[in-house]
């Protein structure tokens, strides 16, 4: 998959929403979910087609945490560092992941394979320490298990 999204795809998404400025947020979300991040060219195209000023789109795209203006990896790794996971050793899990992929939370590796984030609670504290990859929850993690899980996605 290309890192820069084709403009045709963006036009298709905009057409799906009938090019209405009120659908801006939905259009950005669709682009984000297809492309994993919002390239500047895409925002410029949306701005042009919807006749919404670029500074407004930039404000919205930076306001919501759901959007990313920098490339994101194919797999989203979330490490829970909430209280329950923390006391069960979440920091050791995080260290293992940082070591294995070579990135810190909020970063993406050079091959665009993984993006690492910390979260404050995934709502399944009984499974702690918890790690989530692409929406799939891996519970009762240990450093060894963590490396095994990451291998699946490499």
């Amino acid at each position: 998959m290309d890192t820069i999204m084709e403009l045709d795809n963006i036009d298709r998404i905009i057409d799906k929403h009938h090019g209405e400025a009120s659908a801006l947020l939905q259009i950005l979300l669709d682009i984000q979910s297809e492309n994993r991040w919002l390239p500047w060219e895409a925002l410029a195209r949306v701005s042009e087609r919807l006749a919404v000023p670029l500074n407004r789109i930039q404000h919205i795209a930076t306001f919501y945490k759901a959007f990313s203006l920098v490339p994101k990896g194919r797999h989203r790794v979330h490490i829970c560092v909430g209280t329950a996971c923390h006391v069960r050793g979440a920091t050791r899990i995080l260290d293992t992941v940082e070591e294995a992929i070579g990135i810190k939370p909020g970063e993406t590796d050079l091959d665009l394979n993984f993006s690492l984030e910390t979260v404050n609670c995934l709502g399944c504290c009984a499974l702690g320490p918890v790690m989530e990859v692409d929406g799939k929850v891996h519970g009762k993690m240990s450093p060894v298990k963590t490396s095994q899980v990451l291998k699946i996605y490499e």
Binding site: A44, P53, L54, N55, R56, Q58, H59, T62, F63
Partner: peptide, 20 residues
Amino acid sequence: NAIGFVDRGINKEISFIPQI
């Protein structure tokens, strides 16, 4: 529309759109 706000809360700042 050459300048806008970016980010939110304590990180909010003004930012020019370079192209414009």
